[in-house]
Amino acid sequence: MRLTILVDNCTCIDRYFLAEPALSIFIEDQGQRILFDCGYSDVFLHNAVRAGIDLLHLDFLAFSHGHLDHTWGLDALIRRITEARLQGLPHHPPHLVAHPRTFVSVFEPTAGDIGALLSREKVGHHFNCTFSTEPVALTERLTWLGTIPRLMPFESQDPIGSKADDERPDFLPDDTALAYRSEKGLVIITGCSHAGICNIVEYAKHLTGECRVVDIIGGLHLQSPSTAQLAGTIGYLEKEGLSHLHAGHCTDLASKIALARTLPLREVGSGLSLSY
């Protein structure tokens, strides 16, 4: 598997890519081309051009959850594919994989609607879709995890806004991640880890039967975390024996400094490419 971070909050040193507070990752594995999240704007499209990546020929488009910093770029991708169709250019629309509630609006008291711009019905006009709470195999080794069981008492305790369809507090049941079974162990690829990064890792191990974890890439949702959450997360990850920890996006500086004291934290940013 090879992955390239198309969008992150930061860029890597000496890499002339754009950044925004969002996430999008391009993955290639076993002949399959996967886009994981679309960021907030069309930045991921510009960075794909810089990286020489063709996003007109994707096999899968998978979403981690429905928040604006992961889904609002979908509008730009639809425009790009539609323009290619109108101009008679070669293209291959991807199969979309998401939780059934990913495209339900989310209202937050201060920010307003922070959910996806497009409805599930509208998305279905542009893509063949699989909406599932169960895991979906994207390749023989790469799995979209579906609903993550919430087991850790120090994680996933606070809702963010409320879903428009039932007006109940949103604990983000749609939040999920990817798990890749490498020869050395699991590589976990996350969006924001609203479900809790430790919950995600535990479920990935349970689902795949692989107990070794070699790397975690993406957002850990450690933004001014409670003392219990930060300590619990560090304690859990220390026991996993990670070779690398690529914590980015929604991981604040204080949390990165704390993680780096005992864990193999690595630089993350738009343009970073990793191979497994």
Rank of each mutant, 00 (worst) to 15 (best):
S243G: 13
L259P: 05
P225I: 03
E238Q: 14
I234Y: 03
G218D: 08
P225T: 02
D215H: 07
G248P: 07
S224A: 06
G196M: 00
C250E: 13
Q223R: 12
V187K: 04
T233D: 05
S193T: 06
I257C: 14
C250M: 14
H221F: 14
I234V: 14
G232R: 04
R261C: 14
S226Y: 10
S255E: 06
H249M: 09
H206V: 02
C250V: 13
H206Q: 12
E240M: 15
L263I: 12
C192P: 06
T227V: 11
V213W: 03
L237D: 05
L230E: 01
R212Y: 08
K256E: 05
V213G: 00
D215P: 02
H249D: 15
S226P: 01
V201M: 04
H221E: 10
A247H: 10
S226L: 09
G248S: 06
A258E: 12
D215A: 15
S224Q: 12
G218M: 08
H194A: 06
S193R: 00
Q229A: 04
E238L: 11
L186K: 04
T262V: 14
G209Q: 04
C211D: 12
T227K: 15
V201I: 15
K256Y: 00
L230A: 03
V187T: 08
C211Q: 14
D215I: 04
T262H: 15
L259T: 13
I197F: 06
Y203Q: 02
L237P: 07
E202N: 04
H206W: 07
R261E: 14
